[in-house]
Design a protein around this nucleic acid. Structure first.
Lengths: 206, 206
DNA sequence: TTACAACTGTAGTGATCGCTACAGGAAAGC
DNA sequence: GCTTTCCTGTAGCGATCACTACAGTTGTAA
């Protein structure tokens, strides 16, 4: 069934164990933050001893960085990008905003953990935080490119401003959803956000 | 000089000690989150023994709740509300947004700690988190009233939506400032946010 | 002077922290 | 069979955790 992966076979339940450890970690970290994520609790939740965790991951920092990485991958996978060539700019921006919103609903861990790490400003940077900021920087560039393409009238400073506002809106709406729960319609709010961005772009273009 | 406060005089450096403890706590909590805030570290930073901390505060939960409370008070104090009767609605909304922005620049701890606590979803609610959510609910109602007053054409559902969007924008822009530091002009972004809200209100009124 | 309330300092409690040493089991290759 | 590699289980390291008991100090009021 599952034959050779690379030259060397994967043994027993190593892959499965790694997955279980990451599942437990994302759960604990989402509840208690970076410092609150204790190896003992993760061990209890995933049913594997601490030594297994330390066999798969160098240390706690490495573990949490791996969680961020996997969560981001899942979020990206949930993001089915809209067709690049369809409809008006307005329709395309709205479409993109809705895609982002549904991806956040499907895979919220990435942004939740990322924001938690971001708000903490400890002297020694956890590598998970650094990783989140890199991903975010990447997203920033992508969105900036999109604005530059859709709104040719914008000067670079305006594109920067608008991009920052766009990402901030996404963060804030996500937080609102985390607080408000089912009472908050994230997709509708992102649609509104797209509208707002469009109007702002028009204002800044003039 | 400082005579009777209530009937009983305040002794020695109790008030001063309480202040130093809270100062140290806000610093530590901002760096390391709720779980990461250890009494030993707070004790070291403020130069007072743990027993003093426990004399002033019931437990760690109580301490952090007090920090949130004081931080909110300071933020409110930094918020010099605009004159209720001056200018067009647009000018008044923009003015308010700028006031909120500068207050956040002057007293950022409140929102930072609040958001950190908000994103954590531990089974047993820390009272600090509850306190933040109450304050936020209060702010929500105030902003909703403002929208209802300035934009009479909005139906209640639209007011709710817009208010959620307004608060989310504030949260997100604050996070952007925390990440971007000096590269982010918070006041300018809040001005943009006011503009966006105005345009959205117009769209939702029609 | 006495009495008391308001703090501070010392010295711990048992529990939990991140992490490690190391023996052993289970599957794959020889 | 034997070895090698992968992974788990047990036990425990020193450090730190939240918190407390309690004696000591000090300003104020009677």
């Amino acid at each position: 069934m599952d034959d050779d992966r690379n030259t060397r076979r994967r043994r027993a339940n190593g892959e499965e164990s790694r997955r279980r450890i990451l599942d437990a970690t994302v759960e604990v970290a989402g509840e208690r933050g970076y410092e609150g994520t204790s190896i003992a609790l993760v061990s209890k939740r995933c049913g594997l001893p601490a030594s297994s965790i330390y066999w798969h991951f160098k240390d706690k920092d490495d573990l949490i960085a791996a969680v961020i990485e996997r969560s981001f991958g899942r979020w990206l996978a949930a993001l089915t990008l809209p067709d690049d060539s369809a409809g008006t700019p307005m329709a395309r921006v709205t479409m993109l905003a809705q895609q982002v919103a549904t991806a956040l609903l499907e895979a919220p861990d990435f942004l939740r953990l990322g924001l938690m790490l971001t708000l903490e400003r400890r002297p020694e940077e956890p590598s998970a935080r650094t990783m989140f900021l890199q991903v975010r920087e990447f997203a920033h560039r992508r969105v900036a490119d999109m604005f530059a393409e859709f709104m040719p009238g914008l000067d670079p400073a305006a594109v920067q401003l608008l991009t920052t506002y766009a990402l901030a809106g996404a963060d804030g709406l996500f937080v609102a959803k985390e607080i408000g729960g089912d009472g908050v319609d994230l997709v509708r709010l992102f649609e509104l956000h797209a509208l707002a961005l469009f109007d702002l772009a028009a204002r800044l273009s003039s």
